[in-house]
């Protein structure tokens, strides 16, 4: 799958360049250096993987450093599953990130559509208030936000973990900008056929917005999955912790069980690495879009 992804980037320029310059010494050096660099960059993850496949004895400090386990073992993974908490955190993270993603998409799509297609009293003010929100750093609000969530009796609940993460003004902007660029002709036709506003949004606008919805959804999901500070505050009960918090607060405290720790790290990294592999194209494009506009 991934090999195909390179095509769109430089369809015209690359062949021209390649014909002009045959593989020169320079190119060989660049390729070697780039691949060496990439391998170095992967080393920490490979080392964690290697350690997670050793026995606890072989992995412990004081043993000589070797990359290929002499005594291949899934001991680390097995004890991890026997403890069970890792699985609980994984479920919690999945639930919370899914709630955040679905709610964010719903709320932001509706709001963006409202701003893009309607004129209503107070629109400018409401919009300005949301613009101002772009500059408010969430981290500086944790203290009062914690107090609010506490007052609502939502600590150690999925809603308490998820709800405060569902109001990113940025996403409203991105979607509004996209909707603004969608031609209105289709909607006019649908309206003449008697479709209501929600119907138009659902069956005319959204089908045209696939890529942008995917991008917003993926970034929201990753952001929420990797959020650390907020879940750290709200989920104090180990059974309600998300994966990053559980791994950081509980597993990080195991100390000397390195094979098990690295197994936890690998399993902790896996879900999003898979998401990244599957959605590599959208993610790369999404990040690139930040700088290109």
């Amino acid at each position: 799958m991934t090999a195909v992804l390179d095509k769109p980037e430089a369809p015209a320029a690359a062949p021209v360049r390649r014909r002009r310059k045959r593989p020169t010494a320079g190119a060989v050096i660049v390729y070697t250096a780039a691949i060496a660099l990439a391998v170095v960059w992967l080393l920490p993850l490979l080392w964690a993987l290697s350690t997670s496949l050793k026995t606890e004895t072989e992995a412990s400090l004081g043993q000589d450093i070797h990359w290929i386990p002499r005594d291949w073992s899934l001991e680390g993974y097995r004890t991890l599953f026997e403890r069970g908490d890792h699985l609980v955190w994984m479920v919690n993270s999945t639930v919370v990130s899914s709630i955040v993603t679905v709610l964010t998409l719903t709320l932001c799509v509706l709001a963006a559509y409202g701003f893009s297609r309607f004129d209503f009293p107070g629109k400018k003010i409401v919009f300005a208030v949301i613009i101002a929100g772009l500059m408010v750093p969430g981290e500086a609000l944790i203290v009062p936000l914690f107090d609010i969530v506490n007052a609502l009796n939502l600590s150690n609940t999925y809603w308490g973990l998820a709800l405060p993460q569902t109001v990113p003004p940025v996403m409203v902007f991105i979607l509004k900008r996209f909707f603004d660029a969608v031609p209105r002709d289709y909607e006019e036709a649908a309206k003449i056929d008697g479709a209501g506003h929600l119907r138009v949004l659902w069956s005319v606008i959204l089908p045209l917005s696939g890529p942008i919805l995917a991008a917003v959804g993926i970034f929201t999901f990753i952001g929420s999955w990797n959020n650390f500070l907020w879940p750290l505050l709200v989920a104090t009960d180990p059974s309600m912790m998300t994966l990053p918090v559980g791994l950081g607060v509980v597993t990080g405290g195991y100390g000397l069980l390195y094979a098990q720790n690295m197994a936890a790290a690998i399993l902790g990294a896996l879900p999003l690495l898979i998401v990244f592999l599957v959605f590599q194209k959208q993610i790369v494009k999404g990040v690139a879009g930040v700088g290109l506009k």
Binding site: T2, A3, L5, D6, E9, Y31, A34, I35, L37, A38, V39, W41, L42, P44, L45, W47, A48, I222, W225, N226, F228, L243, P244, V245, L247, G248, T251, G252, N261, M262, A264, A265, G268, A269, L272, L273, V275, F276, L277, Q280, I283, V284
Partner: peptide
């Protein structure tokens, strides 16, 4: 020509949760 692999290797750590990074 090695673009996809290089991008993968360099960007992959970015999607990993912070506690995995710190444990390693």
């Amino acid at each position: 020509r090695a673009g996809w692999f290089l991008r993968l290797a360099i960007f992959a750590p970015y999607v990993i949760p912070v506690s995995v990074v710190t444990i390693i």
